[in-house]
Design a protein around this nucleic acid. Structure first.
Lengths: 236, 236
DNA sequence: CGTCCAGTTGACTCACCTCAAACGTGGTGG
DNA sequence: CCACCACGTTTGAGGTGAGTCAACTGGACG
């Protein structure tokens, strides 16, 4: 049940996230006319925990920004193996693709609220300019994906879990920076599928971090970072 | 010595690559005026095998298209572990980034010739449109990076090597499609760093493919695909 | 108070890594 | 033209980090 939703609906956290990362979205609203190929569709949509927002192969005429909650995008192999590409929180944009079809699926990690944007989809030759904001968003996603490839291809389990904790801290950033409190919205399985590990390895590694006094696991989803710099040192 | 360069300079291969994948670059030339933020800088540049084209952290005011040869982009961890992000061949574009700094480094896998393009780098607020070609190039790179994450996070060594062979076939595509001949420009170490494996595992897996009559290893860098569909079946 | 599901922990396995030796091949120089 | 070298590759033997399978724990909720 959405402990994590409650956390994210918490005004302090939500407002900070919005202020910190939503500035460009305002300008996105400003230029949302036909010349930029963008059409906000005002109606907010809600998705319950675990629900699919869109599937791989579906029409990609719409993308989303998150008001509250957490979303994951993922790919599957035919036998069910899953790779989570990214987690998105309030203020993030997701589901923006070049072609007409989504190459990832998106699911609600927690109950969440999103705003759909319609992409003006004329033929490529006519509509050959894009707002720079969307372009730089795409490029930032690309840089992130490349960084993640380094993690998946070359880092140990300990390094991966440390990197995940640090990444999630910088995304959600509750509490002061020296001893941040982490509220995980996702299961160990989600974390494992993001890091290319198994849920048991994630669990064991977190336990090991706790034994070594790097973190304190209050509940499975609530973690205190006790030694930030040691955690950063683990991140190769 | 550039067996691989010779191969790529082979008129048939080079022409096919150019014809097949360079169409959008021509239009890129067409619209290369100040309004698109693009400035081709006509001078071709040559890089010898193994030479760095640019380094991580360097100024990213210039990107490149490849005339001949093969280029790799990669990231390093402090202890020397390497992850190769992509290989690029004639007709490909690389080194295009959002910020002012490259987040990857680029090196010549074989002797190669590239054309630098200067990116008109005004402040983001003024220069807020980009040619759609570059945008869709970025989005295609993103989709590719996400596919690669699935490989790195969730596929076995056999699946990875099979995927690599198929990807390289579709990139270079010499010979007819049913039994393509593969000319590898890169070492086993390069392949390993691309696939998140060790060079020994790559070598063993290729030998295993040969024992199973999926391929025939003529020389270390020249491989015949004898059973394309079996290879495709291995690719999860 | 019992059920359910996520998480933890342990014992064992195995796919891939590490270390090391041998092999080929192409280039160099005598 | 051949001997030699350097370097990339192959192959083997053995080790290990993470996976697998399974039992147990502990909140959350009815």
């Amino acid at each position: 049940m959405p402990t994590e939703l409650a956390t994210l609906s918490n005004p302090t956290t939500a407002e900070r996230a919005l202020n910190a990362r939503l500035s460009w979205m305002k300008s996105l609203d400003d230029e949302a006319d036909s010349s930029t190929g963008l059409r906000p569709s005002g109606a907010q949509r809600h998705f319950a925990q675990g629900r699919e927002i869109y599937g791989e192969g579906e029409n990609a005429g719409v993308f989303f920004t998150i008001v509250s909650g957490v979303v994951r995008t993922c790919k599957f192999l035919s036998d069910g193996r899953r790779q989570i590409d990214a987690f998105y929180v309030a203020g993030d944009i997701f589901g923006f693709e070049v072609g007409t079809q989504h190459v990832l699926s998106a699911e609600a990690v927690s109950d969440c609220t999103v705003i759909p944007y319609r992409r003006h989809d004329t033929d490529a030759s006519k509509d050959d300019i894009m707002p720079r904001q969307l372009f730089s968003h795409a490029m930032r996603s690309l840089a992130q994906a490349q960084e993640h490839s380094l993690l998946l291809g070359r880092k140990s389990a300990v390094e991966r879990v440390a990197a995940f904790l640090l990444e999630w801290v910088s995304k959600t950033a509750a509490g002061h920076a020296v001893n941040p409190a982490i509220n995980l919205a996702m299961t160990r399985q989600d974390i494992a599928d993001y890091l290319g590990l198994t849920l048991e390895t994630v669990s064991r590694t977190l336990s090991q971090f706790e034994r070594n006094k790097l973190i304190e696991i209050q509940t499975a989803r609530q973690i205190w970072v006790k030694n930030m710099s040691a955690l950063q040192n683990l991140n190769a």
